[in-house]
Design a protein around this nucleic acid. Structure first.
Lengths: 144, 144
DNA sequence: TCGTTTGTTGCAAAAAGTGGCAGGAAGGTG
DNA sequence: CACCTTCCTGCCACTTTTTGCAACAAACGA
């Protein structure tokens, strides 16, 4: 599982929160499958292991994880919110409006822009997971 | 009111939609106040003028306006979705995590980044209203 | 290991958001 | 101006998300 490579328990504890079976289970569920996972999928996986877990717990836990930076959430615009375990490298996503495909991009591509924003406005941007919408290469060529 | 400078009625009509009192009222409500407005604020203002307007009407109208490009919506990540009347120039926002202040930035600052994304990934980004989080100059200096 | 403290959980109820439907009204035509 | 067509709105029922609260259990010290 992806998150076993980072010490998530320490992160939770050091923020003054507790490591509970529910939280561990939910984190596991987010890591199952590859890449982004929807809230519904997470809920289904969690309930499969422990049907007694309440929806409200899931919502609260997800919010906590996002606040702690353990999990990254992205609203891809199609109504569903996606969750993904935080990766060691800062990255962002491209989402095609047409075919809905996703693609990761390196943070480096945005760093220059962040630097310019800082120079011109003194604003230290720290957004760590941006979603850019547009047309992917394939769909763009079909548009002709 | 901001939107009186553009012919929003023509935009609504030319798209095959009707100009109703409810729609006008909701557009007015979005323009009240400066800059971004939350959904809750819009609802409160609308109800103040006409308490009979239904929630579903507000949601449907907001969605319509966004589709038409009359209104720009931005998910600022704090759970609240913000709405703003569309402005003639493409722009984005900086939002301070600390003091919640907002500031507009020119699209030019992002264009280079969009160009690079296109060069490297063939992806035509067209996101027209990005929200970057971080620390504004004032809050950053206080952090010391 | 036991007891204490305090963050968490599950439950229940409220609030927010969505979809179907029938009556009502905007906009066009004669 | 009256009529007609079609889109909109308000209402209702339903799903999703959030909140208050009492019981529970993780973490820590003795």
């Amino acid at each position: 599982m992806t998150h076993e490579t980072i010490d998530y328990e320490a992160i939770i504890r050091s923020a003054g929160h507790r490591v509970t079976p529910q939280r561990v289970l939910i984190l596991d569920a987010i890591c199952d499958g590859s890449g982004h996972t929807t809230l519904g999928e997470v809920y289904a996986r969690v309930r499969q292991v422990d049907p007694s877990i309440d929806r409200s717990t899931l919502y609260r836990t997800l919010k906590l994880f996002v606040d702690l930076g353990l999990v990254v959430s992205a609203d891809t615009g199609d109504g569903e919110t996606y969750f993904e375990i935080a990766k060691p490298h800062r990255h962002h996503h491209l989402v095609c409006r047409q075919c809905r495909s996703e693609r990761e991009i390196e943070h480096t591509l945005l760093q220059d822009m962040f630097d310019q924003v800082f120079q011109q406005h003194g604003f230290k941007a720290d957004t760590d997971h941006l979603v850019l919408f547009g047309l992917c290469r394939e769909c763009a060529s079909k548009q002709l």
